[in-house]
Each structure stands twice: as C-alpha cells, then as structure tokens.
Design a protein around this nucleic acid. Structure first.
Lengths: 132, 132
DNA sequence: ATATTTGCAAAATTTTTGCTGGTCA
DNA sequence: TGACCAGCAAAAATTTTGCAAATAT
C-alpha cells in the first residue's frame, strides 16, 4: 500500500508556485520563488517535495534536451515545443497520439506504458521577429 | 563557416566504440571501454569529443528520462523505447511521423525544426519473463 | 504519539573548463 | 607551421542524502 504523506506548508507552497505559472520552471526557479514567501526553506526540501509530488502523479518532471529538469503542474501526458531561440517551453494543443503506442507494440513487439513527444523549433512569438 | 576538426586517435576510437555497440551507452561507459585500448585517455576528452561529434551531426545525444546522457551512433532521427525493467534503450522500427510536424505548425502555430519521441515500457525480452 | 518532514550541510553525480604541452593536416 | 586537441586536475552545475529537531495527523 501507498506510503502516507502530509500536505505541509512547504509542499503546498511549492505546488502553488508551480500551478501559478504557465512556464515550466526548474527546481532552482521554484526555490527562489518559494523563498520570497518562506525564506528559510532549503533547496533540498524543494527537490524532495518535487520528487514526492511526481511519485504521487500530481506533477510531471520534464528532463528532455538539457542537463536539468523542468517541472509541469499538469500531470496528464501532453506534448511540448522548446523554442531554440528564447528557450521557453510551450504546451501544445495537438492531441495524444494513441495509435503510436499500438504501432510500437505491433511493429517492435514491446509493451508500451508511456511515451513523451517533444518538439524543437521557433515559437510563434520568436517567429514574428524573424527577418526573412 | 564551420570550424576545422581533426580525426585524432582518440576521436576515432570513441566513434568506433560507439559504432560497435547496439546499446546506447553513457559517456562513462564509453570512457571505460576506450581505456582498455588507450589507458591514459581522460574522461574530459571523451566528453569533448562526444560534443564535437554531436555538433558535426555524426552522433546523437539522448538525454531523456534520466539525469545523464546516452549517445547513439545513428544521427538520423529515430525513436526509442526505454525498458523500465532492464533499463536498456532500444531502437524502434516505426517510421518517422512527419505528419506530426505539420500538425504542430497548423494547430499550434510554431515552426518545428526537430522532434523526439521516446517510449517507456517493458521490452520484448523482459515481457517473456513476466508472470501473469 | 509517531511517522513523516524540515533545514542544514556535506556529498554524490555528471559535465565543463583552464592550462600547458603535444599533434594532425 | 599553426590551429586544434590531449591529459590532468580543479571547478561547476544539478541533485541526493544523513542527521537532529520540528510538525502534521
């Protein structure tokens, strides 16, 4: 059975901060935000709580294409585009591609439990500023 | 214009080691393999060369779903399945999903230059050993 | 009451970098 | 010959962990 867990002030604050932004922040960014409200919180606590929240399925850890993780308050699988110009990560509206899972099972014979799809390119906003 | 680059003994050996395996090894694994042949090579050199080879488009760096990178001697985009049981990474045969790129451009309005698709699950071999 | 969590600091892990001398083309 | 590269070792960057005190339920 699942381990008990408490909703401490720290954990709640971390979750609130993550839910209050549309960006996909790093642990360090979250740490700095949270410190505004709770100056003595430690970075270790932030990491531990992000880990717990991830285990409970309340958030996602994104560690794609860089040496550090970003976190996402939306635990449902969805896809992202990382802008190579401004480095921001955007949620995409395109639907989950369920047929891919079937395809991998049929063609490659593995049992698929999960998948991640990440795009890289120039975001809508940076595109406007591009000279042709 | 592009920077010149030399095929040093070290760089060649690193590339050969990477090309000789179907696994998707870490820098440290490559380092240890290469040391068998060239005991004085340094880990820094391995990292530097993997970086150069990646820049030249000869290999891929895979940094998805873990805290460290793996490397792939096949520089063409292709998809992987990471087995959550044996931790191995498998190349998949399913074709590149070009329509996804168009979908992201049409639905989300970003300019897509590249994409990565990673699957997680139980590989063909581990599946056999599973009890039902 | 007590299992869980915190803050702190130290350590672990993975990767990068400065420097000086060596080497490929 | 001269830009590029190697080895070494130290540092950087990110994340994890041990411990004693505090806290949520």
């Amino acid at each position: 059975m699942e381990k008990a867990s408490r909703m401490t002030k720290q954990r709640k604050l971390i979750l609130d901060v993550l839910r209050s932004t549309k960006s996909h922040p790093t642990a360090d960014w979250i740490y700095n935000q949270v410190r505004g409200e709770m100056p003595n919180i430690s970075l270790g606590t932030v990491y531990r709580n992000l880990g717990v929240l991830k285990e409970k399925g309340e958030i996602l850890e994104l560690n794609y294409g860089s040496s550090f993780s970003r976190y996402d308050c939306n635990p449902e699988n969805h896809y992202h585009l990382t802008c190579t110009k401004c480095e921001r990560v955007f949620d995409l509206k395109i639907p989950i591609q369920k047929q891919l899972v079937k395809e991998v099972m049929d063609i490659d014979g593995h049992k698929v439990l999960d998948h991640r799809l990440e795009f890289y390119g120039i975001c809508k906003e940076c595109k406007k500023q591009e000279v042709n």
